[in-house]
């Protein structure tokens, strides 16, 4: 009862005490999400890690949730737990045969040792800044060993693996695990090499246009020739059965055509002189007996 009265009498004091108590409570309790690792520093020295990354454990098994620390003595450094991307854009790289290539690369990494990361890099954002030049250097070194043809061919998978391995070796001391390194772009740089690629493509296509025309002409000639041969065969199969009759038959057709009896020709276009001895007039003259 007395205590209550005392509080009533000195509400401001009470309020102050309550605030201090709340502050102590709040600064001793940590809410660690699944996506973060909490590195707790005691007197600026790494003391322990809450929710440290462990490849063997699933989420909810690595200690996320409420955590406790000594207020005002311990300080928390938050470290990403998820996989991070490290982008490297527009790197000019020379191949062994001095051709240049512009590449974009991305490394995926995870901070697996927050203590080491903190000791060397200070904070997580600096890790990326420190790794970027190492990645660029690794790319440059590995690519410079290879001919240009290899760089733009599927064999560069092996190359990327060795770049990844190189980066991984350096990254260990930052407490970082490299998951992979991949190229998102590998382009010819603007200028002579791009222009010469365009020229090559253009020439190839111009040649192609020419050869397309040539092939096409040859093909249509072949079609015509084949048809002519087939027609000739049809004729000879049919007419060859009796050359003498064909001769007669064809002569009849020919007379009809040449002496202008087709319907579109004017009557009287041809004058024919006939000898009475003509075979056609044989009956006209009257058949002589015995003939």
């Amino acid at each position: 009862m007395n205590g209550v009265n005392w509080i009533r009498r000195n509400p401001l004091l009470w309020l102050g005490v309550a605030l201090i108590a709340a502050a102590i409570l709040l600064s001793s309790v940590l809410r660690v999400p699944e996506t973060e690792q909490a590195l707790v520093l005691r007197f600026q020295q790494p003391s322990f890690i809450l929710n440290a990354y462990d490849p063997r454990e699933d989420y909810a098994e690595t200690g996320a949730g409420l955590g406790f620390k000594i207020p005002f003595v311990d300080r928390v450094v938050w470290v990403h737990k998820r996989v991070l991307n490290l982008d490297l854009t527009r790197q000019s790289i020379l191949s062994a045969d001095q051709q240049s290539l512009e590449v974009d690369a991305v490394a995926r990494y995870r901070i697996v040792n927050p203590v080491r990361m903190h000791a060397i890099a200070g904070d997580e954002n600096r890790v990326g800044e420190l790794l970027r030049p190492i990645l660029a250097e690794a790319l440059r070194e590995q690519f410079h060993k290879q001919a240009f043809n290899v760089l733009v061919s599927p064999e560069r998978d092996a190359l990327m693996n060795s770049v990844g391995a190189m980066l991984a070796r350096s990254a260990v001391k930052y407490g970082v695990q490299i998951i992979d390194v991949r190229l998102t772009r590998a382009d010819l740089p603007q200028g002579p090499s791009l222009d010469s690629a365009f020229d090559r493509m253009r020439n190839a296509r111009e040649q192609m246009a020419v050869s397309v025309i040539n092939d096409g002409n040859a093909q249509s000639k072949l079609i015509r020739d084949n048809a002519a041969v087939a027609a000739a065969k049809t004729y000879s199969d049919s007419f060859g059965r009796d050359p003498a009759f064909y001769d007669f038959y064809r002569a009849m057709q020919s007379y009809e055509l040449t002496f202008g009896t087709s319907d579109n020709q004017r009557r009287g276009a041809t004058t024919i002189l006939l000898s009475p001895d003509n075979d056609y007039l044989r009956e006209f003259m009257g058949r002589k007996p015995g003939q």
């Binding site: 007669f248 002496f259 009896t261 276009a269 041809t270 004058t271 024919i272 002189l273």
Partner: peptide
């Protein structure tokens, strides 16, 4: 019928040829 067909074709053709032509018959 070789001979008949041959003659028939001959006459039919000559008919068509000569029917539309001017004809002159000369004693050689």
């Amino acid at each position: 019928a070789p001979e008949v067909t041959r003659r028939r074709l001959y006459y039919e053709t000559m008919e068509r040829v000569l029917a539309k032509s001017d004809k002159v018959i000369v004693e050689p």
